[in-house]
Nucleic acid binder design. Structure first.
Lengths: 209, 209
DNA sequence: TTAATATTTTTCCAAATGGTCAAAAATTAG
DNA sequence: CTAATTTTTGACCATTTGGAAAAATATTAA
């Protein structure tokens, strides 16, 4: 007889699931949810469609697991912004980490973009719950820094939004960025972006004296 | 006998086409290209599907016309940035106009976002041609301002990107913005955003003395 | 080896979807 | 009014797609 069968979690299972998620991430981030078909995902994962449905009961289930896994990864940099750190240094390193994520995980960014752009049907509660609380907490920290005169006084929420926007832009709008920059300048786009953003934010946020 | 029949352009035609484009804009911007069906568009436009196809030969054709019409509207603010203006004032007004567009035409922004995020399959040549040239021209103007000491020296291309990113964020990520800001603060989001961006950019871009 | 279990494939289906076509209805020129 | 023309509709079709069922194959515990 075999062991537990209700929810087997063999090596094979774990590996196949990863394989599927990897393929699904690629397809979903390229074509959006509706534009992605199980056939394409299965092909990409090098398995048959029914086999894919053996590991995930439906298209939605794959998408859901992707989005959920994504959120944690995505918010990690913000979570690491510590109250006790030196404000300018904390912001600088937050921005740098976000740009690195745009460079290293563009597919995750696009997947997220797609979800939000279409009204966040699957993660609205997450946004209004966990995310909202996290941002509130961090906005408070930033505001406190401003009160102490460590940063120029601006709206902390919109500051966070702007950092999200500027960094994720390099993942989501990569085609446009590259089209405009041309071949040579494109190669250096992430380094240039990091440098520019640092100048923009740090210069702009330094308290006036 | 009736007049010209090759390409009639009666009142009725013009009105119905507008009606269809309006409906298509709503549907496409909400569900993306693949997520939008001719049925939904026809329903939204209050006509039958075959009737819709009488005015536009295919789904692609509707989309194409939307995207093309959009680009001109979208780039108008950048086009208006004039070499002879006062640099800080020109930037300020550019940012303000972009924020107003995010507020007033979020559907257009989302449509564009969707197109780019999926690799810009329909407008790649536009990006590499018209858009690239326009940005090159404006980047030169901005760089010249910097050389004259009117602005802090930063990469002009990335400056433009960051303005696009920060402003369009308020259209594309509106759900997220509102979820985080909560009901009250959401009402003022565009005004606050405009104020914040002005502080960020103008403060950050002023030449040091 | 064998029997139980896990995995994969083959076949199939119903619904959704982009699009066609011919006929009906409405509009307009003369 | 009448005839030509434009607009609208109803019926239909081929393809795509998410998914189900069951049989076939592989794996593993004993």
């Amino acid at each position: 007889m075999k062991k537990n069968s209700n929810y087997p979690n063999t090596r094979i299972q774990r590996q196949k699931r990863l394989q599927i998620l990897e393929a699904a991430l690629k397809i979903f981030s390229t074509h959006g949810y509706r534009g992605s078909t199980l056939d394409k995902i299965a092909l990409e994962a090098r398995i048959s469609k029914p086999n894919l449905l053996y590991y995930y009961k439906s298209k939605q289930e794959i998408h859901k697991e992707l989005i959920n896994g994504l959120m944690q990864k995505w918010l990690a940099p913000l979570r690491e912004m510590k109250k006790n750190g030196e404000p300018i240094a904390e912001l600088r390193s937050y921005i740098r980490r976000k740009i690195e994520m745009a460079r290293d995980f563009p597919r995750e960014s696009r997947l997220f973009n797609n979800e939000i752009t279409q009204g966040a049907p699957h993660i609205k509660d997450l946004l209004e719950g966990e995310l909202k609380e996290l941002v509130e907490e961090k906005a408070k920290i930033i505001s406190a820094w401003m009160e102490e005169g460590k940063l120029r006084k601006v709206d902390a929420y919109h500051l966070i939004f702007s950092i999200w926007a500027t960094t994720q832009h390099y993942a989501d709008f990569d085609v446009q960025v590259c089209a405009i920059l041309g071949e040579e300048k494109s190669k250096k786009r992430f380094d240039e972006a990091a440098k520019f953003l640092e100048q923009l934010y740090i210069g702009g946020l330094k308290p006036e004296k």
